[in-house]
Write a protein that binds this DNA or RNA. Structure first.
Length: 271
DNA sequence: CCTTGAACCTGCGGGC
DNA sequence: TGCCCGCAGGTTCAAG
């Protein structure tokens, strides 16, 4: 599923496709995703206009002209499209939001781990469900010093720390693996053993890889599609995730399960 | 507090 | 051909 680069690609595309469009009808074809979908039907969306769409963590937040926001998360298998009504409904498309230009915003999600709700905005301008999440990895506040301070407090591995949304948001299984590989740090290293220099290197690589992945439209492993239907081209740039051979030295990669997730590494290139 | 493991789902590929 | 198992970009909740 979409990690930060995929959510960013979706949010940017939706900003273009939805901005200024008025909602003419909402249809729901399944009772629930992660949460029930009835409230969406009863939210009074007809006649509301989209103002813009932004990303926060792995959420895309489409703001409405009444101060509320259509807030979405893509779970493991969520795909969003904006297509004409003439395109037949796919099997796992659970929500249609019809627009005044004849297009339909469609939310497809086979595994239904996704999230789609109309939320009131809190004092910080973001929907209430986003309160309490960690720092944005591309923000200036995410520094080597900050990561080092967090690492000192914990007994977990560095990979689990990078994937902890309460610390830093949006880094999932793919980009944690790629960032640690690029940093030369083993994913199973205890966070408390990291030096400040290593934390600085990890932060630098996280930012570089996320920016690069955004540039390539994210990573498609199997399900993910951009709003225009294209695949995430960063899949071709992966050096370690789901690879049999290390993308740098060519040695056989190894895996270890950390926090319940398969973690790929090269014990020659990472220490 | 923190850490761990299970649960929520469908689809796909591999082994038999 | 079909069945069973394990696994997949995430998040949340209960239990220790």
């Amino acid at each position: 599923m979409p990690e930060l680069p995929e959510a960013e690609s979706i949010a940017r595309a939706l900003d273009q496709a939805l901005k200024g469009r008025t909602i003419t009808k909402v249809e729901v074809f399944f009772p629930r995703l992660r949460t029930p979908l009835e409230p969406l039907l009863k939210a009074g969306l007809k006649g509301r206009k989209f103002v813009d769409c932004k990303r926060r963590a792995r959420y895309a937040v489409a703001e409405l002209d009444d101060g509320r926001a259509l807030t979405m998360h893509f779970g493991m298998s969520g795909v969003v499209r904006v297509e004409p009504g003439s395109v037949p409904k796919r099997k796992h498309e659970h929500v249609f939001i019809h627009l005044d230009d004849g297009n339909i915003f469609r939310f497809e999600d086979p595994r239904r781990f996704g999230f789609l709700e109309v939320q009131a905005k809190g004092p910080d301008g973001w929907p209430e469900c986003l309160a309490g999440i960690g720092v944005e990895p591309l923000d200036r506040a995410f520094t080597g010093e900050m990561l080092y301070a967090e690492a000192q407090k914990r007994k977990t591995t560095v990979k689990e720390l990078l994937m902890d949304n309460k610390v830093v948001t949006g880094i999932g299984n793919i980009y944690a693996a790629e960032s640690l590989f690029a940093s030369g740090v083993l994913p199973q290293r205890r966070a408390g053993t990291l030096t400040l220099d290593e934390c600085k290197r990890i932060v630098k690589e996280v930012k570089r890889i996320l920016r690069l992945a955004i540039k390539w439209g994210g990573t498609t492993v199997s399900d993910f599609k951009n709003v225009d239907g294209s695949e995430g081209k960063f899949a071709q740039k992966l050096k370690i995730y789901a690879r049999k051979k290390c993308g740098k030295c060519g040695a056989d990669t190894k895996t270890i399960v950390l926090g319940g997730r398969t973690s790929w590494y090269c014990d020659h290139c990472q220490k």
